[in-house]
């Protein structure tokens, strides 16, 4: 069994700023923010696909490690309803970057990242299932966790924790009919 013990904590990491400068050169109005070690780029939905593509192709972010959404309906002072976050990782340098975009009703459509990362397939289906955000260009966008006939998107903030009674909606089998 080949095993390696490389001290990879001492690698040279391409400064985040250079990536940002390069991105800003290509895309106008790109916002950035930072919290702990999470560095974020905030883009408009229209630019999202191009930003992701440029990050993948030009900056070596080859692994989509996370993709999730949040519903900011009850968030203090929130302006936008939904946020979608992509977490990208460069497997060579170990650098991470988060790309965030915001969405508002009624236009809940984003370009699908499936053509860039096959791993986006199920992640997008889950976001569609839980939040009802549509992904344009996804090959097979249908519910993944909830039953096909389910109505509603459970992780939206206006959906109650205990549901609307779906969990009680089954025929009862008693001893007599079994």
């Amino acid at each position: 069994m080949p095993a390696r013990n490389v001290d990879r904590t001492k690698r040279i990491i391409m400064p985040f700023d250079t990536i940002i400068t390069a991105l800003k050169g290509r895309f106008a109005d790109l916002a950035t923010s930072e919290f702990r070690d999470n560095r974020r780029v905030v883009v408009a939905p229209a630019q999202l696909f191009d930003v992701l593509k440029s990050l993948q192709e030009e900056h070596g972010f080859d692994l989509l490690f996370e993709m999730t959404a949040a519903d900011y309906l009850k968030y203090p002072n929130a302006v936008d309803r939904f946020g979608v976050v992509y977490g990208l990782l460069n497997t060579v340098t170990g650098e991470r970057v988060f790309v965030k975009t915001v969405l508002n009703e009624p236009d809940l459509t984003l370009p699908s990242a499936f053509s860039l990362w096959k791993g986006a397939d199920w992640l997008e289906r889950e976001i569609y299932d839980m939040y009802g955000i549509l992904f344009d260009g996804h090959p097979d966008l249908r519910r993944i966790l909830m039953p096909e006939a389910f109505a509603g998107h459970p992780l939206r903030k206006d959906y109650p924790l205990r549901g609307r009674g779906e969990r009680h909606n089954f025929p009862v089998i008693t001893r007599a009919n079994s």
Partner: peptide, 25 residues
């Protein structure tokens, strides 16, 4: 494929992706 499909952990390491958060971060 392992990288494109977002694999991590033992599954990625068995395919030659040298990544382990215990060492990397």
């Amino acid at each position: 494929l392992a990288i494109n499909l977002s694999c991590t952990g033992p599954i990625a390491r068995a395919s030659g992706v040298v990544r382990d958060l215990r060492k990397d971060e």
